[in-house]
Amino acid sequence: MGDTTRIGCTCGQTRLEVRGAPIASVECCCASCREAGERFRHLEGAPDILTEYGATPFVMYRKDRVRFLGGSEGLKAVRLSQDASTRRIVATCWNTPVFLELKGGHWLSLYGELWSDGTRPPPQMRTMASNLPSGAVLPDDIPNAKKQNLGFFARLFGAWVAMGFRNPKMSVTGEIDV
Rank of each mutant, 00 (worst) to 15 (best):
G2Y: 08
G2S: 15
D3T: 13
T4E: 13
R6F: 07
R6P: 00
I7V: 15
G8S: 10
C9W: 02
C11H: 09
G12M: 07
T14A: 13
E17C: 10
V18A: 01
V18H: 00
R19A: 11
A21Q: 15
P22G: 04
I23C: 06
E27D: 12
S32K: 12
R34E: 07
R34Y: 11
E35Y: 08
A36K: 01
A36D: 07
G37D: 04
R41M: 09
L43W: 07
A46K: 02
A46P: 04
I49A: 10
T51M: 06
E52R: 12
Y53C: 03
Y53Q: 10
P57G: 09
P57R: 05
Y61P: 00
R62C: 03
R62P: 00
K63H: 06
V66L: 04
L69W: 09
G71H: 03
G71E: 05
S72L: 02
S72V: 02
A77R: 15
D83N: 13
S85P: 01
S85K: 14
T86I: 09
R87S: 11
R88G: 03
I89S: 03
I89M: 05
V90I: 15
T92N: 04
T92K: 03
C93W: 03
P97L: 06
P97N: 09
P97C: 07
E101T: 01
G105V: 06
W107F: 13
W107C: 10
L110T: 02
G112I: 01
E113W: 01
E113H: 07
E113G: 11
W115K: 06
G118P: 08
T119G: 06
T127Y: 05
M128A: 10
M128E: 14
A129Q: 00
L132H: 01
S134M: 10
V137Q: 15
V137I: 14
V137T: 15
D140C: 05
I142S: 04
P143G: 08
N144F: 02
K147E: 15
K147L: 13
N149D: 15
F152Y: 15
R155N: 12
F157Q: 11
F157P: 00
G158L: 11
R166F: 01
R166S: 15
R166L: 07
R166N: 12
K169V: 12
T173I: 10
E175D: 14
V178C: 12
